[in-house]
């Protein structure tokens, strides 16, 4: 049914993890400098860089990249639900 990788957990090499960490630190620096530069850039950076960081952590640190479609789909459902809740509340707040 499932490959050995999923059954026993995939091993991610330390070098990969270190590179991901490096990317996360760079993105953080980018985020901070963008928000110091201008308010508009700050909002843009928050909307782009923050999810990118979260994606890296999910993908590599949490091994989602190596999981089967089931877990990936479940994560998608959960995230989508939260996004829908937030955006539907703005049907009220945004148009009062």
């Amino acid at each position: 049914m499932t490959s050995m990788d999923q059954e026993k957990g995939h091993i991610v090499e330390p070098a990969v993890l270190a590179r991901v960490w490096g990317a996360l630190v760079c993105l953080t620096i980018g985020l901070v400098s963008a928000s110091l530069a201008s308010p508009k850039l700050a909002v843009l950076a928050m909307l782009v860089i923050t999810p990118a960081k979260a994606w890296l952590v999910f993908h590599y640190f949490m091994h989602l990249k190596y999981e089967g479609p089931l877990l990936k789909g479940m994560v998608l459902v959960a995230l989508l639900t939260l996004v829908i809740f937030i955006s539907m509340m703005f049907l009220d707040l945004g148009f009062r």
Binding site: L91, L93, F95
Partner: peptide, 22 residues
Amino acid sequence: GSVVWAHHMFTSGMADLANIIF
């Protein structure tokens, strides 16, 4: 069923758009 919650709030003073969509 997860996206109909605000029908409990039609008289609470929500935005009209929210009322209609919910």
